[in-house]
Structures are given as C-alpha cells and as structure tokens.
C-alpha cells in the first residue's frame, strides 16, 4: 500500500470537503425546490387562465410575458453582440487602442450591478427616449404613450445587460478558428466580409449558439432591471403591444414570496413558479455547458 503523508491527507480532506459542501448545496437547493414544486405543475396551473388570486395559479400570461420579453431581448442583443465580437476578432488590430476601449467597455458593462441597469432603463429608455418620442409624435395625447414602463423598455435594458455574455462567448468561439481557415479563404480571393459571412460565422456557429443560450438564460432570470422598466404585478392578460406592461416569472416569484397576503396559501403556487423559472434558465444553462463542451471537444479532434 502507498502511504499518504498527513499533510497530503489534510489538504485533500479540507479541499474535498469544500467541494462536497458546494455541490451538496447545489443539490439541496434544486432538490428542495423541485420536490415541492414539481407536483404543483398541473396543466391547469401552468396553462390555465388566471383567476383573481395569483395563489390559484394560471400562469399562462406570466409565461407568455417572460417569453416575449426574453425574445425581444434576444433579437436586440444577439446581432449587436455577434457584430461586436466579429469586429473585435476579425477587423480590429489586436493591439489597437480602439479595440482596447471596446473590450474594457464590455468588461465594465458586465460588472455593472443589475439594479443600476434598472435605474438606467428608467432614466434613459422610459423617461428620456420615451419622453422624446412622446413629445415629437404624441404631443396631443392625454397621458404618456411611450414614456411609461413597457415590455419594450425592459427588453432593451436586458439586452444591454446580456450583451457582454454574447460578445465574450462569440469572441471565444471566433478565436478558436484556426488561422489557416481564414488564410485559405483569403488566398482564394475572398473579400474580408465574404470570409466573415461564409467561413468564419458558419465555423463559429455552435459557439455563437452557446452565447445566445447563456444570454437567454441570464436575461430570463434577472428581476432587478425590469422592476421599474416594465414589469407589473398581477393582471389577467399577456402583453399584446410593445408598450404594454408585462408579468414575469422572476418578478412573480418575488411577489409571491414577499407580498402575498396569505403566505401559507401562496406556497404551492410559489414553488411551482420557481420550478418553471428554473426550467427556463437552469436547463438552458446545462444545454450551454454541454454545447460548449462538445464544440471544444470538436475543436480538439
């Protein structure tokens, strides 16, 4: 038998225990929530029409609101993010000051607290942009048309919040493309844009998808940025217009957990909503991890 020195044993025990603790709490969180939440998820609870009391379920408009907001966000942030990454990796000289500025802006953007995005969304999109639109196009309207919280503004706020996720993941994918792939295309007389469009982007497809999934997962789980920019409490319908307020699973969890008049009665609905939110965000995360793992393994092979 091999002897293990006491120092080695102590180090393994201490660090191993920490890992077990971390993984244990992950399992505990997911387990506790899923065990209590999954039984609540009846078709009626999930897809039923909402009644007067949110504790009774009927989450369809909440789900639709979340999906609509997340989709709008994706439409806004993915083209922006991918284009930025393409510029950084294919156009900007590696050591240029401009690229440095963009990179540090991306970094800063990722570090801004989500609640500050909320303040910004309110101050910029709702009050400034919305106010300008109203004063130009809706000067005769009695109340604010665009200058009020709306799903449009929430989505745009979230789009900026998730922009760094898309940029960083896409750039990473672009960087793994071997140099000779680009050179081969250039040597055949392709222009730079043709190389990007026909060679680089198709090559980086799975990496870009990873970024999109991660951004969706991140954006769908954020509550703080939408608190003042568009989310509403309990209403019975889903948004039909970009200027409507909307309900959101994350905000719904917050409301049920802290503002429900009858806490006991709201419990099942709360667990059910949390499971739905986790299904949307966490499962996407797992998908992204698997996708990334595969594309890396593919790049190595």
């Amino acid at each position: 038998m091999k002897r293990v020195s006491r120092g080695d044993w102590l180090l393994s025990a201490a660090t191993g225990a920490a890992v077990v603790l971390v993984l244990g709490s992950l399992v505990a969180i997911l387990g506790a929530i899923v065990v209590r939440g999954a039984p609540v998820l009846s078709p009626k609870f999930v897809f039923g029409s909402p009644g007067a009391d949110p504790a009774d379920g009927g989450l369809l408009p909440v789900i639709l609101g979340t999906v609509a907001c997340t989709l709008l966000m994706t439409v806004a942030c993915v083209p922006l993010g991918v284009t930025t990454a393409v510029w950084l990796s294919e156009y900007a000289p590696r050591t240029s000051t401009l690229a440095g500025i963009v990179r540090s802006a991306i970094r800063n953007l990722a570090a801004v607290p989500s609640i500050v995005f909320g303040l910004f969304g309110l101050g910029f999109f709702v009050l400034f942009v919305g106010g300008k639109i109203d004063s130009v196009f809706y000067a005769q309207a009695t109340g604010p048309v665009f200058a009020r919280p709306a799903i449009l503004w929430s989505s745009l706020t979230l789009a900026l919040l998730t922009l760094p996720v898309v940029v960083v993941t896409t750039e990473e994918a672009l960087r793994t493309i071997p140099r000779d792939v680009r050179e081969a295309a250039f040597a055949l007389g392709a222009t730079r844009l043709q190389v990007v469009w026909r060679v680089i982007l198709p090559h980086a497809k799975s990496g870009i998808w990873t970024g999109v999934i991660l951004a969706v997962s991140r954006g769908a789980g954020e509550v703080a940025p939408i608190l003042f920019t568009g989310v509403v409490g309990w209403q019975s319908r889903a948004p039909t217009d970009a200027r409507d307020g909307f309900m959101h699973l994350g905000n719904h969890v917050y409301l049920l957990a802290t503002q429900a008049p009858d806490v006991e009665r709201a419990q099942p609905a709360l667990y059910g909503t949390v499971v739905l939110l986790l299904l949307l965000t966490f499962s996407l995360n797992i998908a992204a991890v698997i996708l990334r793992h595969r594309s890396r393994a593919g790049a190595r092979a």
């Binding site: 997962s217 789980g221 954020e222 949390v274």
Partner: peptide, 13 residues
C-alpha cells in the same frame, strides 16, 4: 452551474 440559478430563486431559497 451555480451561476446559472437566477438570484431571485436563491433569494427565495
């Protein structure tokens, strides 16, 4: 993956 759990869920937990 921990980072993939929305903070509102952790708040609830």
């Amino acid at each position: 993956l921990f980072a993939g759990i929305p903070s509102v869920v952790l708040g609830f937990f």
